[in-house]
Write a protein that binds this DNA or RNA. Structure first.
Length: 890
RNA sequence: GGGCGCGUAGCUCAGUUGGCCAGAGCACCUCGUUUACACCGAGGGGGUCGCCCGUUCGAGUCGGGCCGCGCCCACCA
C-alpha cells in the first residue's frame, strides 16, 4: 500500500503500545523481512527500474570490525533509499574467501601445510592436536577442503552480523570468490584474454615474497621505513689496479650479482671511467661502466651499481641497456649456489670468488650483508664508515620481509598498453566524492609494468591450463593446452586435458597441469560478473544471461579508498578488456574508521573494536546512526557517544509517533491552519534536500538535514500545537455548529501530525530501519522499506489544492511564533520558574510584517507558553518583554 | 619529490554559488517531572573560523604564500 492510499482511505485506530521500546526490534523485524522476502530482487523489473550494487565481498579471515559496519551501513542507506524510490535493488552479498589470509588461518587452525606433491586422501582428517611447529603435509585438494570448511563457519558468523545490522541484502544471491561459479567465470575470462593476446606468460624478473615464496603484484606492495646502512665500496678498473671506481650501496650482498656500474651521461667527474671495465671486489667479475639518464649525479658518488636485481630501477637499467643476468637470490630469500669459473660466471680469480662466495651461500639477505661487509673490510675495499640511515623499503602488504626481485615464469595481464583508455574510463566514472579520482589517476599513471597474476599458492582459482611434456619430460610452456569452456571450472592438478589420459600426467610425452593459482584480485575484479550470474558457457553453474543484462553495468561500486589501486582499478580493467564498458556508473568511496586517537584501526595495533557488543549495547539503529554520520570518503573516529545520540533519536521517533497517532484519524487531508501548513511546507524543503543528497550518494547530508529538522519539529512545532491538538480530545462534538471552528483546527493539526510523521518515518527509514519499521507498523500496512519515498504529490495534497497565496506569510508566522516561544522559555528559565508558569503579558517587539504574521499563530503560541495577552510593538529589533505571574507561595 | 584532503567552541563536526551580531551535537553549568518522551525537557557560558597578504562595499567562504596534520603516489643507489 502506498502512503497516499493509506491516508485517503479511512484508517483503523493505530495500535500504539502503551510504552514503546527499542528492545527486541532487531530480532523481530529481521525475521519478518526474511519471511516476507522484503529485500528480494525483483527480476521482472525492466532494466531502467533496476538499481544494482557491486558490494565489496568482505575478506573472510576471522573477525569483522567496526570499519566493516561503517561502510556497509553507508551502502545500505543508499540501497534503502533507492528501493523506496521504486527501484528493484540488486544487492547481493559476497564473501572473499579466496587467497592467502585463509591459507594462513587454515595452517594455524588445523596444523597442516599444503604440499602439492602429496596425493589426495579422501579420508583425511586433520590432526586432533594441531601443531604449528610440525604441520602435517597434505595434498592441495585436501588443503582446499579445509579452507572451505573454515570459511563456511566464518561466513555464517558474518551473515548473522549483517542481519543484525539490518543490511537489506538479498541473501538468496550470496556468492563466494572461491565458489564454482566464481572459478568458472574467472577461468573463462582468463581464456578470453589469452585468446585475444591480453594475457601472456613470460620468464622475467618479478616481485617476489620470500616468505610465501610467490610472485606478487605492484598493487600489493607497500613502503615501510627500515633502518639501513650506506657503505662506500671500491671497484678497481680492470688492468689498471691503481684506478678505482667508488659506489655507494645499501645492499652490498648483491655485489656478486653486479652486472654494470652506471653514471649520468653528463657527469664530468665520471668521464674518465665511462667505457672502461671494472672488477667487482672479492669476486673479480668484469663489468662495464655505462651511462643512463636515470642516474642521479647528486646521489652518493654519482656512480651506481646495477645488480640483478636490487630494486625496480635495476630492472629498468637491465632491460634498457641489455645487461646479462647474474642472479644470486633463491626463491627462499637465501643466496643460492652459483657456478663460478670456466663455463659459468667469469672471474679474474676463480678460487677467491669461490672461497668468498662460500661465506655467503645459504645465508639470508641480512646475514649475507653482515658477512660481506666483513670480507670487504678485510680486503680493504670499504671506504670510510658506513652511514646509518632510514629508508623506505618495499614489502608485500601481507609479508614480513622485504620483497625481492627474482626471475621466474609468470602470467601477466596487459595494463600498460591500456593506460590512456583506463584514464579515460576513470573520467567517465562518477566519483563520490569527486576528488577520489586523483588516486586512481595517480595509480594508472604510475604503472610500471603489466599485472602479474600468477601466484605460487594453493587456495585460489587455478589457471585452466596444462602443458605438454616432450619426450625427455621437459615442460613445453609455449604450447599451453587450454580447457574447453564447457569444462569450466577445472583444476588442472586433478582434471585431465582433452586428448590425454590421466596416467600421462607428469610422464614424457604426457602433460602437466599449471601449478599456480591466480592473484585473488584476478577473481575479485570480476565481482559484477559473478554477482550478476554471468556464467554463460560455463557448465553446470546456472547460466543467467538475462539477469546479467539487467544488472550490468552496475549502478554503483561502494568501497573504501585504500583499495582504489587494487579492486577498483582491476575491475575497471577487466570490464574494459572483456566488454569495452565501465563496470558501473558510480563509485561511492568511503573512509576508514579511526580509533579515538585518530589512528587507523588494525589488528597489529590492537585497537580494533568488534561490532557485536556495540549492536547489543546500543542497538543496530544507533550504531547505524553513528556510521551514517561519517561523510563520504572521510575517515571518521570511532565514537560511542554518537551511538547514544542515535539511540536518543530512535527513542524520540517512538515517542513522537505515539503522540501523533494517539487520536482517531480525521477525514480528509487538507490543512486549514497556517502553522500546520507552514510546517509541512518546510518539511517539503527537507524532503527535497534529502532527496538530492541521496541522489549524490551523500547519505550523511541527507541524515543531517532530516535529523536537524526533526528535532526542531519536536521542540517547537509539537509544543506549539499541543494545546490545539488536545482541544477537542476532551470537549468532544457536543457543541454542534459553535465548535466547528475549534473542531476544524484540531482536525487540521491531527492531519498535519499524521502527514508529517508518515514522512519522517520514511525519511529516517534508510538510517534507522528497525525503529522506523516499528512505528510504521503501528498504523500502516506493509513494510516502510517498500513504501514510496516522500515527494511532491503527497505534499501538495496537504494544501488541499489551495496552495497558499500567502505562503510566505504563513512561513513567517511559524518562524516568529517559534522565536517568541523561545524568548518566553528563556525568561522563565532565567527567572528559575517552571515552564508551565503563567505569563500574564508578553510584549513582542518586531517588524510590522512579522507582527502581522504572528497573528496567525497567536492562539497556539498562547497555549504553548501559557501566555495571557500578547501585545505587539513595531520595532527594528526583535525582543520580547515577558511578565510572569507572581509566584504563589504555598 | 609530486598529488589529494584536512585545519571553525574543550571534543566530533555542519556551514552548496562570498551577504545581517558564526551554527549543531556531545561535554560542562543552571532550572524544571506540563497528559509523546527522565532512554526527558527548557536555558546558559564558551570561538582572533591555523597564520600572513590580496580581490571585494563585504571573506569561514574566492586568489596567492606560509605553518601543521593525515593519506595516496614516486626511478628512495
Amino acid at each position: 500500500m502506498t502512503p497516499d492510499q493509506s491516508e485517503t482511505q479511512p484508517q483503523a485506530a493505530a495500535e500504539v503500545p502503551e510504552r514503546p521500546t527499542l528492545d527486541g526490534l532487531e530480532e523481530r523485524w529481521s525475521e519478518v523481512w526474511e519471511r516476507e522476502g522484503c529485500y528480494r530482487f525483483d527480476r521482472s523489473a525492466p532494466r531502467e527500474r533496476v538499481f544494482s550494487i557491486d558490494t565489496p565481498p568482505p575478506t573472510v579471515s576471522g573477525s569483522l570490525h567496526v570499519g566493516h559496519v561503517f561502510s556497509y551501513t553507508h551502502t545500505d542507506a543508499v540501497a534503502r533509499y533507492q528501493r523506496m524510490r521504486g527501484k528493484a535493488v540488486f544487492y547481493p552479498m559476497g564473501w572473499d574467501d579466496n587467497g592467502l589470509p585463509t591459507e594462513r588461518r587454515v595452517q594455524n587452525h588445523f596444523g597442516v601445510r599444503c604440499d602439492p606433491s602429496v596425493p589426495y586422501d579422501p579420508d583425511f582428517t586433520p590432526p586432533a592436536e594441531p601443531s604449528e611447529r610440525e604441520p602435517v603435509p597434505i595434498s592441495r585438494p585436501n588443503f582446499v577442503e579445509l579452507c572451505l570448511r573454515l570459511t563456511e563457519t566464518d561466513e555464517r558468523a558474518f551473515e548473522e552480523l549483517w542481519r543484525g545490522l539490518g543490511l537489506s541484502v538479498d541473501w538468496s544471491m550470496t556468492y563466494t570468490t572461491i565458489g564454482a561459479r566464481a572459478q568458472g567465470i574467472s577461468q573463462r575470462s582468463f581464456l578470453g584474454l589469452l585468446a585475444r593476446g591480453q594475457a601472456y606468460q613470460l620468464e622475467a624478473p618479478t616481485l617476489w615474497d620470500v616468505d610465501f615464496q610467490t610472485a606478487v603484484a605492484q598493487a600489493e606492495l607497500e613502503d615501510r621505513e627500515r633502518p639501513g646502512a650506506m657503505s662506500r665500496v671500491r671497484f678497481h678498473v680492470a688492468g689498471a689496479d691503481a684506478q678505482e671506481a667508488l659506489i655507494e650501496t645499501t645492499r652490498p650482498e648483491l655485489i656478486p650479482a653486479c652486472v654494470a656500474l652506471l653514471a649520468h651521461p653528463d657527469d664530468e667527474r665520471q668521464r674518465e671511467l665511462v667505457g672502461k671495465e671494472v672488477l667487482t671486489p672479492l669476486f673479480g667479475t668484469r663489468v662495464p661502466v655505462l651511462t643512463h639518464a636515470l642516474v642521479d649525479p647528486q646521489k652518493g658518488t654519482g656512480l651506481v651499481m646495477v645488480c640483478t636485481f636490487g630494486d625496480l630501477t635495476d630492472v629498468v637499467w637491465w632491460r634498457e641497456l641489455g645487461l646479462p643476468v647474474r642472479s644470486v637470490l633463491g626463491p627462499d630469500g637465501r643466496l643460492a649456489d652459483v657456478p663460478w669459473g670456466a663455463a659459468g660466471w667469469e672471474s679474474e680469480d676463480v678460487g677467491r670468488a669461490r672461497r668468498d662466495y662460500a661465506e655467503l651461500r645459504g645465508k639470508t639477505v641480512n646475514q649475507a650483508r653482515k658477512r660481506i661487509l666483513e670480507l670487504l673490510e678485510q680486503a680493504g675495499d670499504i671506504v670510510g664508515e658506513p652511514t646509518l640511515l632510514t629508508r623506505a623499503v618495499k614489502f608485500f602488504e601481507k609479508g614480513e620481509r622485504p620483497v625481492e626481485i627474482i626471475t621466474s615464469r609468470q602470467w601477466f595481464f596487459r595494463t600498460v598498453a591500456h593506460r590512456e583508455a583506463l584514464l579515460e574510463r576513470g573520467r567517465e566514472l562518477a566519483w563520490h566524492p569527486p576528488y577520489m579520482r586523483a588516486r586512481y589517476e595517480d595509480w594508472v599513471n604510475g604503472l610500471t609494468g603489466d599485472w602479474c597474476v600468477s601466484r605460487q599458492r594453493f587456495f585460489g582459482v587455478p589457471f585452466p591450463l596444462w602443458y605438454p611434456l616432450d619426450a625427455a619430460g621437459a615442460v613445453l610452456y609455449d604450447e599451453p593446452i587450454a580447457a574447453r569452456e564447457d569444462q569450466l571450472p577445472v583444476d588442472p592438478s586433478t582434471d585431465v586435458p582433452e586428448g590425454y589420459a590421466a596416467e600421462q600426467r607428469g610422464r614424457p610425452n604426457g602433460f602437466a597441469g599449471d601449478p599456480d593459482v591466480m592473484d585473488t584480485w584476478a577473481t575479485s575484479s570480476l565481482t559484477p560478473q559473478i554477482a550478476g550470474g554471468h556464467t554463460a558457457g560455463t557448465a553446470g553453474s546456472g547460466e543467467d544471461d538475462e539477469l546479467f543484462a539487467k544488472v550490468f553495468p552496475m549502478d554503483v561500486r561502494p568501497q573504501a579508498h585504500d583499495i582504489i589501486r587494487t579492486w577498483l582499478f582491476s575491475t575497471i580493467l577487466r570490464s574494459h578488456l572483456d566488454y569495452g564498458v565501465l563496470p558501473w556508473r558510480n563509485a561511492a568511496i568511503s573512509g576508514w574508521v579511526l580509533d579515538p586517537d585518530r589512528k587507523k584501526m588494525s589488528k597489529s595495533k590492537g585497537n580494533v573494536v568488534t561490532p557485536m557488543h556495540l549492536l547489543e549495547e546500543y542497538g543496530a539503529d544507533a550504531v547505524r546512526y553513528w556510521a551514517a554520520n561519517g561523510r563520504p570518503g572521510t575517515d571518521t573516529a570511532f565514537d560511542a557517544q554518537q551511538m547514544k545520540v542515535g539511540r536518543r533519536l530512535a527513542v524520540k521517533l517512538l515517542n513522537a509517533s505515539k503522540f501523533a497517532l494517539a487520536d482517531l484519524p480525521p477525514e480528509g487531508q487538507s490543512l486549514s491552519n497556517p502553522l500546520d501548513r507552514a510546517m509541512v511546507a518546510r518539511l517539503g524543503g527537507v524532503v527535497a534536500d534529502a532527496t538530492s543528497s541521496f541522489e549524490e550518494f551523500d547519505y550523511a547530508r541527507a541524515l543531517e538535514r532530516v535529523e536537524g529538522f526533526f528535532w526542531w519539529y519536536c521542540d517547537y512545532y509539537l509544543e506549539l500545537v499541543k494545546g490545539r491538538r488536545y482541544d477537542t480530545a476532551g470537549s468532544g462534538g457536543g457543541d454542534g455548529a459553535a465548535s466547528d471552528g475549534a473542531g476544524e483546527a484540531t482536525a487540521s493539526v491531527s492531519r498535519a501530525l499524521r502527514r508529517s510523521l508518515s514522512i519522517f518515518q520514511r525519511l529516517l527509514a534508510p538510517f534507522l530501519p528497525f525503529v522506523c519499521e516499528e512505528v510504521w507498523s503501528w498504523w500502516q500496512e506493509g513494510s516502510v522499506h517498500l513504501a514510496s519515498w516522500p515527494g511532491g504529490a503527497e505534499l501538495d495534497a496537504a494544501f488541499g489544492g489551495a496552495q497558499a497565496a500567502d505562503g510566505d506569510l504563513e512561513n513567517t508566522a511559524l518562524a516568529v511564533t517559534a522565536d517568541v516561544l523561545s524568548e518566553v522559555r528563556k525568561a522563565k528559565s532565567q527567572a528559575r520558574r517552571p515552564m508551565r508558569a503563567r505569563v500574564t503579558r508578553a510584549v513582542v517587539h518586531d517588524s510590522a510584517e512579522r507582527l502581522a504574521a504572528l497573528e496567525l499563530g497567536a492562539e497556539d503560541l498562547r497555549g504553548a507558553g501559557s501566555i495571557g495577552t500578547i501585545e505587539k510593538v513595531v520595532s527594528q529589533e526583535f525582543a520580547v518583554d515577558v511578565e510572569l505571574e507572581e509566584e504563589t507561595a504555598d
